[in-house]
């Protein structure tokens, strides 16, 4: 009995990422895109017509990561103009900063938007409540992964709680289905002040594929201040970790 456990332990070894600030994802990963305008923009026009969430625009030439589902199809249609890098640092305090232009060299975090109480109170420990409102379980699984043996975000005091009463903020995933609009609101109101709002995943940022659906209710986003926007389909654990470390003042992009 004990030998089988030793075997598992020996194979397991050390799994944690020693430095969360020093992570490079595989080249295949589709993160921050780089846009290069050319004289002939016909490829981009074709890509924009195909773009499933109208995230890509030709004039002006922009790609809105808050809408983008990172399918990478535009980069295949317009390889001269659009290229996805493996840069996972996609979060921002500003929704507008998620719109990538040809001038974008990194996604600006805009630390000036951070309310002063956030780094003051939450830099050592931040407990979050997660609400899935129409999410497809992939973003939720990635959020779970932030606490797993590899990423171990808990080492920075960032953890998810079982009750809104014990939390400092809410992480919303999914386009916000109508049937979840009220439970989300109740949960948010139950969190003591000051509290932060993080929207996680492109579906949560813009509604994604469901932005026009009748079964979706985005009023929560319109009525409340969002502190951190995190794109992705799903948001990679490193995107979440980077965003939260920036907003709590643990690092500066």
């Amino acid at each position: 009995m004990i030998f089988s456990k030793i075997k598992v332990l020996r194979s397991h070894g050390k799994q944690y990422i020693p430095d969360l600030n020093d992570v490079t994802l595989t080249e295949e990963f589709r993160g921050r895109p780089v846009l290069t305008p050319t004289d002939d923009m016909s490829d981009v026009e074709a890509a924009a017509t195909l773009c499933p969430t109208q995230a890509l625009s030709v004039a002006p030439f922009t790609l809105d990561l808050g809408r983008c589902l990172f399918c990478g199809e535009c980069a295949l249609r317009a390889p001269k103009n659009i290229r996805f890098t493996n840069d996972y640092k996609l979060g921002s305090t500003s929704r507008e900063a998620l719109v990538v232009t040809p001038q974008t060299e990194k996604i600006e975090f805009h630390p000036e938007n951070i309310r002063p109480e956030i780094p003051q109170l939450f830099s050592h420990a931040l407990k979050l409540r997660q609400v899935s409102a129409g999410g497809d379980a992939s973003v939720e699984m990635e959020l779970n992964a932030t606490g797993n043996v590899n990423f171990d975000f808990g080492r920075y005091g960032v953890e998810f709680t079982a009750s809104p009463r014990h939390s400092d903020g809410v992480v919303i995933t999914g386009p916000i289905s109508k049937n979840m609009a009220e439970p989300l609101d109740i949960c948010y109101k139950a969190i003591p002040d000051p509290k932060i709002v993080i929207v996680c995943g492109s579906e949560a940022c813009s509604g994604g594929l469901f932005s026009e659906s009748k079964a979706v209710d985005r009023s929560f986003i319109e009525n409340n201040r969002v502190d951190l926007w995190l794109p992705g389909a799903p948001t990679h654990p490193m995107t979440f970790i980077d965003g939260v470390m920036n907003i709590t003042g643990k690092k500066q992009r």
Partner: peptide, 29 residues
Amino acid sequence: YQHRGVEDEFVATDNRLRQTLLSESIAGD
């Protein structure tokens, strides 16, 4: 609670890529 109108969205669009992405987001796992 998770109802977001997946089946309707398939019909609402002719964009086959959009339909493909819809199928990928029915259940992320």
